[in-house]
Design a binder for these strands. Structure first.
Length: 300
DNA sequence: AACGCGGGGGA
DNA sequence: TCCCCAGCGTT
């Protein structure tokens, strides 16, 4: 969950997830659809599918591999997570290099290479940290201390160098350039895309939903249809905007009500808690439009 | 090596 | 508005 996601965002999901799946075997036995439901709103949904598959492999193995290579072979476990689990869970003398460690290393060694091109160089330099004897003695504690240093003192914008325990060893600080490292290449403008979402409600406010294909955008998640799911009196319900990593999406929402949903519809009111954020925005817009309409009729 | 993939909070 | 977060898998 913490891959590319801040602790404060993860915390409530983590609590609910562990309550639902206290043991690896519980997660392994669950359906991938249910797991994706618990993940809704957290983003990067491939993580949910990979974690589920990972649990199944670990359950089949009878436990976690205890080597970096073994961990690395599991679904969703890349170089960072393999080292994090290796160091924190098993005490292996490795250093997981996340954004915090990257930033600290770029500053300590005053590495000017811009991200993301400079990532390998910075990661390689960071390995020097665990040459230290104390670091090798408690690799997990060391890694987490480094995360905390990056999160609280060696921060991206305004590092609090006077409070830094490593200021005497920091070349960027000595050169007065800490705040500007690591350098970043200018990002290209985020493209815009448009689409349509259809909100079809029945008399009990059940919503017509479908499940997206397992790969690609919002893969495996519940979603509103992009095509009208039935003949109905479709009304404009405005547009919602949602920012993804690589593009900004403007979704035109069309809404309608029918006595009942088409056969085979996936929906129930409870399912809306399992919707990705962009779909929840669109659904809210559709519901607002339909409710306003009924209010108008009442007042008229 | 480059790219696709969410969402939210803080500056 | 922009930045950036305990990154990974596919191509």
């Amino acid at each position: 969950m913490l891959q590319q996601t801040v602790v404060a965002t993860v915390r409530p999901y983590y609590a609910k997830f562990l309550a639902a799946y206290p043991r690896i075997e519980d997660l392994a036995a669950a359906s991938v659809e249910e797991v994706c439901g618990h993940w809704a709103g957290l983003g990067y949904y491939a993580r949910a599918r990979n974690l589920h598959k990972c649990a199944q492999e670990v359950a089949a193995l009878g436990g976690f591999p205890r080597t970096i290579e073994g961990l690395r072979a599991l679904p969703g476990i890349g170089p960072y997570t393999a080292n994090a689990v290796g160091a924190i869970a098993f005490g292996l003398p490795v250093l997981p290099v996340d954004g915090n460690v990257e930033r600290v290393a770029a500053r300590i060694f005053a590495i000017p290479a811009p991200m993301p091109v400079g990532k390998p160089e910075i990661a390689a330099a960071a390995q020097a940290f665990i040459a230290d004897k104390a670091a090798r003695k408690a690799p997990g504690d060391f890694a987490q201390a480094l995360f905390d240093l990056g999160a609280t003192i060696c921060t991206p914008k305004s590092p609090d160098c006077p409070r830094c325990p490593w200021k005497a060893h920091c070349r960027a600080h000595a050169q007065g350039v800490a705040a500007s490292l690591p350098a970043r290449a200018k990002k290209p403008e985020r493209p815009r895309r448009t689409g349509t979402a259809y909100v079809l409600l029945d008399a009990e406010n059940n919503v017509f939903l479908l499940r997206r294909p397992p790969k690609g955008l919002l893969g495996g998640m519940l979603a509103l249809p992009e095509e009208p799911p039935a003949k109905a009196d479709w009304r404009e319900a405005g547009a919602v905007e949602h920012v993804f990593t690589h593009f900004t999406l403007t979704l035109s929402v069309l809404a309608a009500r029918r006595a009942r949903l088409p056969a085979g519809a996936l929906s129930a009111p409870a399912d809306t808690a399992q919707l990705p954020s962009v779909m929840r925005k669109a659904l809210d817009a559709g519901r607002r439009a339909l409710n306003l309409e009924s209010n108008d009729k009442r007042s008229a």
